[in-house]
């Protein structure tokens, strides 16, 4: 699956400072460009019963998925949660899958979604969620990582 470059620019930083560059993986053919303010959604906010408030800015949703053993009510399939987040106006959705190894499989048909869906884990995920946890407002740019071509070895 194509890899994603995630560039994070903090709103409260010196204009000259460089953005934080992180990596993720696009799922199910949803690769593409997206840009917006980073906004967290609780996993339960993407159930049909709940209604997240309308955002006034262009935003990208990030959701920290909990481990399945955690008994968080699943309420609906992950693909439908992603669709709901995009229907609510998100330019893209980032899932922190550090604790949920089943997410990639659940989202394998994300090509049916109109906008990018990115999975992050490990250090990349902890950096992003760390910003959220500290309420560090940030603009996120998502793009497709250009893989450098692997030249065949010439003897």
């Amino acid at each position: 699956a194509p890899r994603a470059v995630i560039k994070v620019t903090l709103l409260r930083q010196e204009p000259t400072s460089k953005p934080i560059t992180l990596e993720g993986v696009f799922v199910g053919g949803s690769a593409g460009y997206a840009e917006g303010k980073l906004m967290q959604s609780h996993p339960l906010s993407l159930c049909n019963t709940s209604e997240d408030e309308r955002q006034d800015s262009i935003f990208i949703t990030i959701v920290k998925l909990e481990s399945p053993g955690n008994k968080v009510p699943q309420c609906q399939p992950l693909l439908d949660k992603a669709r709901l987040a995009l229907q609510r106006g998100a330019e893209a959705i980032i899932f922190d899958v550090s604790d949920d190894a089943t997410a990639a499989h659940q989202l394998r048909e994300a090509f049916s979604l109109p906008k990018p869906v990115v999975l992050v884990e490990g250090a990349n995920a902890e950096e992003l969620m760390g910003l959220v946890n500290k309420n560090e407002e940030a603009i996120v740019h998502i793009d497709i990582m250009m893989e450098s071509p692997k030249w065949p070895p010439y003897d």
Partner: peptide
């Protein structure tokens, strides 16, 4: 009841 509280960019239960 679980309430999903919005606090800036965070949303916590």
């Amino acid at each position: 009841f679980i309430h999903l509280e919005r606090d800036g960019m965070r949303q916590i239960g």
